[in-house]
Design a protein around this nucleic acid. Structure first.
Lengths: 145, 145
DNA sequence: CTCAATAAAATTGTATACAATTAAATTGTG
DNA sequence: CACAATTTAATTGTATACAATTTTATTGAG
């Protein structure tokens, strides 16, 4: 029928999600500028701050991204001297990414970022937890396919 | 301090948002493939199905995107014959985007998409409304800056 | 009326995303 | 052991995002 409300722009559930994700990356930008990192680069380093080396496949699993995104991303981090990209000696297919001293050092400069962003984001703790859980539920549903 | 939990990957609130938005766009892709549209192109047309002409600035306000994203997007829609890009006769700075008959016709092919996606998305109506509202709240907070 | 200020798009350059394909190494099976 | 199947990354090509700059047109102050 012509009065199909499911095709009205303002009734879309997913667009606010899409738009909020863009806005969130935008909000991080000025904070990350001082570290000369993008949001994705920041998340990637965060993983390496907890676990000093990881394969491309492991990054793919944690970040939910494929090698088409990860390979150039990791090359850029390498170019900045924040990681190395070696091959696994036992299995040459595998690329092992290791954080460098410089990459580790960047963690100190990042310590203020979560608090700074929390101020901008304007959600209280309960709301933050809720939105996180909801997104994780959505991710799980979509991952089934 | 070194045990700063706010820098732990799994404690990030925003990453699930980022990842869910990517997953959502991925989920739309196979459905939109039959219309030969991307998610953003679909949203753009959805606006034009409700209001047959709009300026770049108006698109910017509704989609929260700038001309750097919109100009190439609208050129692609023009290349597909779905919109025209005229200049406003009274103010030559303004680009007026109008939907074509072909663009209008595409709406019929899109009618099944919301229902199909709702099946995949695995959230009930209440959850969908919640996540939508939460993202909108987040957007409002971030828009203040 | 005249420009400086402003406004609207377009352009430039960088960094994601991701489908599809390719390349190279390893595994598994007969 | 030979070699097809599989695994892991890299590559290719297209489409966002967006900061920064440029272009063109309009407005507005004097």
């Amino acid at each position: 029928m012509d009065s199909d409300k499911t095709l009205l722009f303002d009734n879309q559930v997913c667009f606010p999600l899409y738009s909020a994700a863009n806005a969130m990356v935008r909000a991080y930008r000025p904070l990350l500028r001082e570290l000369d990192l993008t949001y994705l680069q920041y998340m990637t380093l965060m993983l390496l701050w907890e676990q000093p080396q990881m394969t491309v496949k492991e990054f793919g699993a944690r970040l939910d991204l494929d090698s088409g995104t990860l390979t150039p991303l990791l090359k850029r981090l390498e170019a900045k001297g924040l990681v190395t990209r070696e091959r696994d000696k036992l299995d040459e297919r595998i690329r092992v990414i290791k954080i460098t001293a410089q990459g580790k050092a960047l963690r100190r400069k990042a310590e203020g970022i979560p608090a700074q962003l929390a101020c901008n984001i304007g959600l209280d703790k309960k709301e933050a937890v809720q939105i996180k859980q909801m997104c994780q539920r959505l991710l799980q549903s979509l991952a089934k396919d």
